[in-house]
Design a protein around this nucleic acid. Structure first.
Lengths: 192, 192
DNA sequence: GTCTATACGGCGATAGAC
DNA sequence: GTCTATCGCCGTATAGAC
């Protein structure tokens, strides 16, 4: 039991800490390679206790996906405070650009996770689809606001470029690839 | 000692069978998820005997990378029988396009392998770099033959698009994404 | 709700007969 | 070179005291 006075100052509750640690570990070393013992060490929650919050490792994977999707939702909500659809799309490109240092080390937070879960072939692979489907649908809507009839195609093209360059930047451990491609994509966007 | 695949023997020897089965299994279900027992079943080589040919699982991984790199070399050699650099690049694009059905199921044979090995964080991840580095260098040379000074940038751009769309096609299980992107890339190439 | 100890299975790798 | 049996470790998950 928590003593009085610890409540306000305490770390986030265990479920939240577990989710955050799981997201971090899965991003750093992969979901499959991350063991419950790893998670126990990172989150400082005893191994057996983890199962009180997440009954299986797959439930943990679902929570990770949910967290990553929430991150996109926050980006989207921020972007929608801008009135120009091109500015909104620029903000999306900037999300990768601003993260280029870590992307060059670990890959795209969404893409590398999807790639892994898709190969694993379980139920999580199918669920991971939303991580691409939602951003693409949103991007397509933004391109649609620009009176383009090919919004869906443009959204796929943009997403593919960002995913591809993230993978290449990771392979070459070189964030400059992302700088180059982001600049090109912004020029392309401006010219649309 | 003679290695099969380098001979004209009617029936591939065990080493070759093992390598081929390992490539197939790693592509179908991932390298990490593939167990030596899986490989024994697929190749019909008894489990213990596998270790006569490959002392560790990592050696098997290195053989898989070598095989995938050889596949690119064959494509490159075929492409270099063509005199027009644009035709050579088109052949490279066609490699993904012609494979779109299986790419939409399992991802790009090179890209999905690199992504997995990079996340795993071992020595194989670093070795996998050649799978991107060689094609990109070759593509850059082809663009260079077109008197472009930005050949390296164009090569990265093309490779990123193909890798990205392969991942998206896999996620959506839809080979048509590859058709659309390949058509766009060919038009882009023709207009260079 | 929390935590220690452990069950149970599967994995890479080896031993050793043939 | 080949193959069966098995070792030792490590993974997920559970038992059960507190």
């Amino acid at each position: 039991m928590m003593r009085a006075g610890e409540t306000q100052m305490a770390k986030p509750d265990k479920r939240t800490r577990l989710r955050q640690s799981a997201v971090e570990l899965a991003y750093r070393q992969g979901f499959r390679k991350t063991t419950i013992a790893d998670l126990a060490a990172e989150s400082k929650v005893p191994l057996g206790n983890i199962y009180y919050y997440f009954k299986t490792k797959d439930e943990l994977g679902a929570a990770i996906l949910e967290t990553r999707l929430d991150e996109f939702h926050q980006l989207r909500d921020h972007a929608e405070t801008l009135s120009d659809p091109k500015d909104r799309i620029r903000l999306f490109i900037d999300a990768t650009l601003d993260n280029r240092a870590v992307v060059a080390e670990r890959g795209c937070p969404m893409g590398s996770l999807c790639a892994e879960l898709l190969k694993d072939g379980g139920e999580l692979g199918k669920q991971s689809n939303a991580l691409f489907a939602e951003p693409i649908a949103w991007l397509a809507a933004q391109f649609g606001s620009l009176k383009r009839t090919d919004g869906a195609a443009l959204a796929l093209q943009l997403m593919a470029s960002l995913q591809g360059v993230s993978l290449l930047a990771q392979s070459f451990r070189d964030p400059r690839l992302i700088e180059t491609e982001a600049a090109r994509l912004k020029a392309w966007l401006a010219a649309l």
